[in-house]
Design a protein around this nucleic acid. Structure first.
Lengths: 301, 301
DNA sequence: CAGGATTCCTGACTAAAGTCAGCTTTATGG
DNA sequence: CCATAAAGCTGACTTTAGTCAGGAATCCTG
């Protein structure tokens, strides 16, 4: 671990600092960095002011002033949304022609900067750098995924469950009709009857998982799903572990689940997480495999 | 190439930006970021003011003021070097006990930050991240190596040649006595009689190479050396290519060199760069292999 | 439709960063 | 020993960044 920490620190120092500083220098033209970044973030398609504030993490007053500055330079116009019926409080920033030209310039500079990094390297090294960068990026992204309890009625939770249903419908041999599957009630996934976990990346939902805690039955895990964009990065495993931890904490000694034979990664995950296949314990229409795992009793924490 | 540029840009954006910002946040305690960075950079061993200025890229006035601020807080003392005989204009910054305590705190924060990146990842992913980070770092470092012509009498050039002699003395079966080797005159490596190239990383010399251009003989390459810290990153290949380019530009159609059998990486490099082994063309005491390469005639540029 | 919540804006600041000219002290090369 | 250069300091700025309290317009909810 110590060695790993040292490696991460060295990386932060050389890469983050140096590249970061250079990137800023390339970005800032005659303009203050914050303005350049904002212009960039608005982009050719325009953006809502609220979204910009969230993405750049700026104070509302500060952002307003930056927008006024860009407006003053004739690069941006800020006005209400063009679609009628939209919330008229929400304002929309758009690039003018001059702004678009400036944006293109920034885009090209960014390209040139990336090229200047690749250019001194010989072909194979170049390919290795790109591959390693992609790997770092993927893994860092996955380490930024946050998992927390969430009411199953939350819109983000609903979005995940819908995505889950869509995917399952695509992958099951005979499609998926929710009406034929045993239904799950929101109340069963709300503490203390159960728990729904939501995985988010930068506040965007990217996964979910739930556990049902019936009074004197084994805990039952449902709806473990991970978005394609972060699959293969251990998010599923983290969700599962978190659900098991919760069940153990609530005194359950066993946890079980059923799954479809086409969900091969899920089955692999369950096996490698210590689940053993058992006889069917329900009559779920779409299930082919039933798993169970014994939990070590855990102290309340 | 386009795909690679896009990958680098995505990396710059997500990794550099996010990690960079977080790193700053961890670094800055109650103190302004620039002060914290400076304190960190001074380190437990102290540092010369000029070195700090170079490393942090700060204006002399700005740095002075930052030092005064840290001095005012009792964290740093600035005075002349402790060794007698040193240049008394050069001032040396040292941490006080309080400053050392603060430094330790920053060090621990940096550790904690690195841990917070690793912690959400499962073991194997963690190892992959560390490996990928190391790879990115090495390759980026290599892409920051600058190769340029340099007078062979320059102190940095001399340092490289000394390092070359030391290494060669260690690796040759029978040591290396410069007196027994055919001597190379500085004048032969100075334009137009020849060329000496220096490879530097952040202004530190990390490699060299030279070519001798006798009037009507093939160009002869000498003293290609790369420091251990950047070996395996294509610096040797770049040096070689640059020397060949120069020879071609000066009208030479062939370039040759001799080498010792123990310099296996060098031999592999020459072969893969298109050199073919030829009969001995000189009586160099330490040479076992003689190589030659035909150059494509190149237009002046 | 009243009252509260949202969204964005402005005014009035403070803090930090960065710039530049000129000064003092110390080295160095004839 | 003198002229010149180099290292670092101070004073006197300007520019950016960031904060916070209110205020107008718009929306939502009962």
């Amino acid at each position: 671990m110590e060695r790993q920490v040292a490696a991460v620190r060295r990386f932060n120092r050389t890469v983050t600092q140096r590249i970061g500083a250079l990137d800023d220098a390339y970005m800032a033209r005659a303009r203050p960095l914050a303005q350049a970044r904002l212009l960039w973030e608005i982009g050719p398609g325009g953006a809502e002011v609220a979204a910009l504030r969230a993405r750049l993490g700026l104070d509302s007053g500060h952002l307003s002033r930056l927008l006024r500055a860009l407006e003053g330079d004739g690069l941006v116009t800020v006005g209400p949304s063009d679609r009628a019926g939209d919330d008229a409080r929400v304002r929309h920033a758009r690039l003018t022609d001059a702004g678009r030209a400036e944006w293109t310039e920034l885009d090209e500079r960014s390209d040139r900067f990336a090229q200047s990094i690749l250019e001194p390297l010989a072909g194979p090294h170049r390919e290795r750098l790109v591959a390693a960068m992609a790997e770092v990026e993927r893994l860092l992204v996955s380490s930024m995924v946050v998992i927390e309890p969430c009411p199953p009625g939350d819109p983000r939770a609903r979005a995940c469950v819908r995505a889950y249903a869509r995917e399952v419908a695509r992958r099951f041999d005979d499609g998926f009709d929710p009406a034929l599957s045993s239904p799950v009630d929101d109340a069963d996934l709300t503490p203390p009857a159960g728990l729904f976990l939501l995985a988010t990346l930068n506040a965007e939902p990217v996964g979910c998982g739930a556990v049902k805690l019936r009074p004197d039955a084994p805990a039952e895990i449902k709806r473990v799903w991970v978005a394609g964009t972060v699959r293969g990065l251990g998010v599923g495993r983290r969700l599962l572990a978190e659900l098991e931890r919760h069940a153990a904490q609530r005194g359950r000694r066993r946890v079980r689940l059923d799954t479809n034979r086409n969900l091969t990664e899920a089955i692999a995950l369950y096996r490698s997480a210590g689940y053993r296949e058992v006889e069917p314990f329900n009559t779920e229409r779409y299930a082919h495999h039933w798993f169970e795992k014994r939990l070590a009793p855990r102290v309340e924490r």
